[in-house]
Amino acid sequence: MSETNDTNPSITDLDAEHWLQAYEQMVMIRTFEETANDLYTSARMPGITHLYIGEEAIAVGICEALRQDDYITSTHRGHGHCLAKGAALDKMFAELLGKEAGYCRGKGGSMHIADQETGNLGANGIVGGSAGIATGAGMSIKLRGTDQVSVCFFGDGALGQGLLYESMNMAQLWKLPVIYVCENNQYGEYTHNSKAAAGSMVGRATGFGVHAQAIDGQDIRTVHATARLVIDRARKGGGPAFLVCNTYRFRGHHVGDIDRPYRTREEEAEWAKRDPLTLLEDWLLKSKQAEEHVLERIKQEVKTAVDDAVAFAEEASFPSESEVDQHVYA
């Protein structure tokens, strides 16, 4: 199910410098994920991980509209959200490798990165599991009387979870500043959403009276413009919003899902034509906000930073065995 995207709003009031920052963020996420995949295939990373490649415009477009003290909750496919909200590459890789220097001292791993310094309340291994947490953060904001906003990222798979609907209902009842961002990447694990989500995605929220829109999740300009509108509205007490960002998971469900028998190569090729990075590059070049060599330099700088972060993580120590029963209780 892919609902018709709303018209591209005309507000894109970032200047060239900020668009280049957004571009750098997207390149960073792409490079991070490609590197994580390499670490997996070369058996240098324990466990598996879920790659965000193809969906970068959503995390960056949304988080560029947030302040550092705003909150996000993330998912098992969460590296993009963490980085877009300001996470550091070295601590991210260290966590993926289970090292003490990681964001969670190696106790969380890829699926549980949390960083309260940047407002990241945690990625979550339970699909839809953070809908309540993001809404609770919204409740906390309301009770404390601040003008923060809470963003709940989740995939279309989470549309099958009842908690999401309980949470949206209460957010609307109490006008909580929560933005529910559905990254509709078409597949919940290995099942297409046409087999999992009946009816209208947007209608799930409008039924509660929640402001809802379906947008093109590949175009960061659309994502960002829409995000600014709904985030500003929530900040001013206007209540929650629900965005369906139509996108595509360019890779498998996780790094080990390489043959993808549940979908066709033709379908993948069609979506590859709308790579969010290429779309932004083309626009920056065409609108003369950046030249080819500038974009190339950004890619090189990001590559160097990622390589350095991996080196840091690989050299970092594992946590000591004495840590295993620490942090069970505060």
């Binding site: 309540g132 609770g136 906390s140 809470s150």
Partner: peptide, 14 residues
């Protein structure tokens, strides 16, 4: 489930 989740999120945020 929803109010328990709200409890967790509110607790994490102060």
């Amino acid at each position: 489930a929803g109010i328990a989740g709200i409890g967790v999120g509110a607790a994490i945020t102060g």
